[in-house]
Nucleic acid binder design. Structure first.
Length: 358
DNA sequence: CAAACGTGGCG
DNA sequence: TCGCCAAGTTT
């Protein structure tokens, strides 16, 4: 196999068929950085509107660094994996303080920024700074797993190492950025997960899966265990026109996001019993449980939830944020301003009578 | 190393 | 309705 020919074919295809994306060709490394954080585990089509709003709201690294966390989380609402928002925010502050506001261009320094792993460091170094780095993401993994007929799951550290080595051998010096993006576009337009369009592919001469007519066998996939389903309750506590919201701890699931207080149902417990206990533990209050507001289902990355929301009346006590970062009584008409995960946004939508935004 | 970490689209 | 999974990183 001739590395030069592989990249030549690929780059020729890229010139003709490559996608036009908002952050491509931008001279601003910050724009590349933002797009890469957002694109982690997320489809490009999903990212684009978030990216455009983000760059409008936080046009520079400095603007992001001085922005309040609430604004950052609200701008990220709906994208998921909220640790990315915290990390990007922190990274902006690190660049301001440690690098005089200039995003570093070398792999070592990039790699130290919170939220920047092997992939993102290589992507930013190659796309924004022209470094000869292979940015091995899910796209490159799929394409190269087919090209090499990789016999193991490319997502495993072992598979990842093999493919990274392989990709490095193919890199056209000085054009790694185009090489990476070309493979990403190829994977999203031609080398599709289900039905690859091999008749349109510039790499069939180099593709072992194609030559052996075994495209369906790669990438090798490992079955995942089915995720558990849990039942949780949430309380809608009212005070005049306002409802009570609590803020989740900064780390962990939905870190820093606002929610309706409540928690997981334990064995042998009725739903109202669960809610009474949870609000006692989390808020140090005694409540009586009123009518059901609604039942909401949602799938997270590693479990599913069925949430029962109830109106609640405080019988005694003053709510204190024992298990949460803080709490606020929020006027119903201002619920939209608070960053929430999907399922709490659904509850909020039910309360306000509005549909939750897509 | 394996598990945690969101959401939406699609068959 | 349900499983799969997509521009990954952290612990």
């Amino acid at each position: 196999m001739k590395p030069a020919e592989f990249s030549t074919r690929l780059l020729d295809w890229y010139v003709k068929h490559g996608r036009s994306l908002p952050w491509r060709g931008s001279p601003d490394p910050y724009a590349v950085l933002v797009s890469e954080y957002m694109a982690q585990q997320t489809r490009v089509e999903t990212v684009i509107p978030y990216y455009l709003r983000w760059m409008e709201q936080f046009p520079t690294l400095q603007a992001l660094a001085v922005a309040p966390l609430d604004a950052v989380l609200k701008a990220w609402e709906g994208l998921g994996y909220y640790a990315r928002a915290h990390n990007l925010h922190r990274a902006a502050r690190v660049v301001m303080t440690e690098y005089a506001g200039i995003l570093p261009s070398n792999m070592e320094d990039l790699r130290r920024l919170p939220g920047v792993g092997d992939y993102t460091a290589a992507a930013v170094a190659s796309l924004a700074f022209g470094a000869d780095q292979a940015a091995l993401d899910g796209n490159l993994r799929r394409v190269l797993a087919r090209v090499t007929a990789l016999p193991l799951d490319p997502r495993t550290p072992q598979g990842q190492r093999q493919l990274t080595d392989y990709a490095r051998g193919l890199l056209p010096p000085g054009r790694a950025g185009d090489f990476n993006q070309a493979l990403m576009d190829l994977s999203s337009l031609v080398c599709l997960p289900k039905k690859p369009r091999c008749s349109e592919c510039p790499l069939t001469d180099f593709c072992r899966a194609y030559q052996e007519n075994r495209q369906a066998d790669f990438p090798v996939k490992v079955k995942k265990a089915p995720v558990p389903t849990i039942t949780v309750t949430a309380g809608v506590l009212r005070r005049g026109d306002a409802v009570l919201l609590t803020r989740r701890p900064a780390n962990g699931l939905l870190g820093g996001m606002w929610e309706f207080p409540g928690g997981k149902q334990e064995p042998g417990e009725t739903l109202p019993e669960c809610l009474v206990r949870e609000l006692r533990e989390e808020l140090d209050i005694e409540v009586s449980v009123g009518k059901e507001v609604g039942i909401f289902r949602h799938a997270y990355s590693h479990f599913k939830v069925v949430l029962h929301a109830f109106e609640c009346q405080i019988v005694s006590g003053l709510p204190r944020p024992l298990a949460s970062d803080s709490l606020e009584w929020v006027p119903v008409e201002r619920l939209e301003e608070y960053a929430m995960g999907k399922i709490d946004r659904m509850i909020a939508g039910e309360i306000t009578g509005k549909d939750s935004p897509a």
